[in-house]
Design a protein around this nucleic acid. Structure first.
Lengths: 194, 194
DNA sequence: ACCGTTACCAAACAGTCGTTTGTTCGGCAA
DNA sequence: TTGCCGAACAAACGACTGTTTGGTAACGGT
């Protein structure tokens, strides 16, 4: 049910799905929980979705699109590779915090998708990794980054670190999203420096 | 049911729980699945555990103990902080790969524990973080690491990175556990260097 | 005033969930 | 041989699962 014009109710439902799947996990959330969140019977939800798994896909896909949009913007940036990589890292963590629920579901619950839907997400994940690798390769070619850096390894490490850092983020904590992103970027860039 | 002398069946059951909880998630695994894995009726499993959640706790706790044992060994090592931190990082990743299932469950499924059981695990997590912070602080005091390093932040980042790196590990991949650990340690240490 | 549509409820569907029960069977100790 | 104990099964427990159905109000367009 990937509709162009989303009804109000459907938007509410997707928001509730993001919140609950993030907090309780996909299998830990029932249609009853979702119905309660909207003040509806669980059966009534099927006027706005074809299945529970379709909701999961929609939330996961929204998370993926948020991340990809920021990454592509960073990739298209002018200037040296370290500047672009820094922008990507900060954007990654800002996205993760701004869209906390969708990001959490994207990272932790996507494996419960059916084979074909999971494959669709895998494509987006590959595209993201590709972007990070391209920037790092640019940096190596330009002599900014260490030549001996294993590109695939570095790219994964970068994403890995970012994904767990935001798991510690607390809205009432001392550090804001951008600050966390900057510290994170600084540490990673030092590790990659030529 | 934290028994001193584990019966054979109970050991089998815990092993199956680690495998299945890791692969399908806690809520995605039923007692039926566990029974099938042992060739028993699901009701028969209650001769070896008091509840499904008790199994989860036992698996999570085993994971925590594996990590802590290696971390404490690294902490007690003689020599400069960077050597001890490197040992801890490599040990972390080696543990994660050696005890893949228990580690995965420890990291991803512990949040489904009941309040009191989760609190018990939280204590072990705090102890682990404490160890990492202590080593980094030693390094700062000795002038090995940058003075302006945010210790709490660095400690979390270190663990974060390690936890996702092993999510990419494939037994048939080109890189072994120790190799991954070494590359990871190298990158982090460069980032912390004075 | 009538139509078709949408959104919802109440109820039922056929399973599955985690857990408990009553019972049986094999082996071991006395 | 007897008594006991652990391990297992078959069956049932009540609750809950995701999903479908039939019916019914309220709606905007004609």
């Amino acid at each position: 049910m990937p509709v162009t014009q989303e009804s109000t109710r459907r938007t509410e439902l997707l928001a509730a799905a993001a919140t609950l799947f993030s907090a309780r996990g996909y299998h830990g959330t029932s249609m009853q929980h979702l119905g309660d969140a909207l003040g509806l019977q669980r059966g009534s939800l099927y006027a706005h979705t074809t299945s529970k798994e379709e909701l999961l896909f929609e939330v996961v896909d929204a998370g993926a699109r948020h991340f990809l949009a920021r990454a592509e913007a960073a990739y298209a940036l002018p200037g040296p590779a370290d500047r672009r990589l820094r922008a990507l890292l900060i954007g990654h963590i800002e996205t993760a915090i701004e869209h906390f629920d969708a990001a959490t579901v994207f990272l932790n619950e996507w494996r419960y998708l059916s084979d074909d839907r999971r494959a669709a997400i895998q494509t987006e994940r590959d595209r993201y990794e590709r972007i990070v690798r391209d920037i790092i390769e640019d940096g190596i070619t330009a002599g900014e980054f260490r030549v001996d850096a294993d590109v695939a390894f570095a790219a994964r490490l970068v994403l890995s670190a970012g994904n767990w850092t935001f798991a510690w983020y607390r809205p009432d904590g001392e550090l804001g999203a951008t600050e966390i992103g900057e510290r994170f970027a600084e540490l990673v860039l030092k590790g990659l420096q030529a």
